[in-house]
Amino acid sequence: MSTRMRKLERHGGRLFVYGCLAVLATLYLVPLWVMLITSFKPLDEIYSGSLIGLPKQITFEAWSKAWSTACIGTNCVGLSPFFLNSLIITIPAVFVSTAIGAINGYTLTKWKFRGADLFFAVMLFGCFLPLQAVLLPIARVLGMLRLSGSTAGLILVHSVYGIAFTTMFFRNYFVSFPDELTKAALVDGAGFFRIFFSIALPTAIPIAVVCCIWQFTSIWNDFLFGVSFSAGGSSPITVALNNVVNVTLGRKQYNVDMAAALIAALPTLIVYVLSGRYFVRGLTAGAVKG
């Protein structure tokens, strides 16, 4: 092959790569674009205009409606109380499950005892458990604890079923943390908790961030637990969003639907954009185990 042809091939190749990437990136962005522009359009323009065209007239009406007056069933209070519910559920559950995972992961690797690996394997299955297999007993137990239909019940459930994932994150991190450091501290007279708080934990900040982001995303986005165990006023935002969208009275307000969906999506989207690297590490941690 002559050098000229090779050069041509290389240029053609680059063009192909960038062309494909541009087309694919556009395809992936279209739904977000459509949601955004629809949420800023007045309703008449939605029914007369184009799906992907910019709004001729920008209005924030749909956003304010979605936030404060949209109807969830017969209750027209907007998404704001449910947004708050999701925060109330997510924040404690993230911290509780991450803290438990940190100490578990540390213990399973730095204080190995006979059966520690079996313990981990038994726990690991919890990451992939189809929750349908435990849904009914959870409902019964929450009833017995008088936590049915409360945000407290959802905090409890999310904390418990998060332990498997959080333990896995920290265990896989601490496995490659050098034993020499903990052993030296032990010789110096430091104990189990002292070593955890002043040696192991400070180095584990990145994995703690990964873990918090993972837990935040999955608890915020949860629908199955929310729809099964919450009632009316205690619903998380995903359940409320689904109800807003399924209101069948009158002309369908697509702009309000899209604003509502964006409100539900914003917290996790912001976390993702600000910390994409950690988010990806959390995602792929499920694939590569130590």
Binding site: D222, F223, T238, T268, L269, Y272, F279
Partner: peptide, 8 residues
Amino acid sequence: PMALSFIV
């Protein structure tokens, strides 16, 4: 899209 809820 992976950061979004399936409901969204």
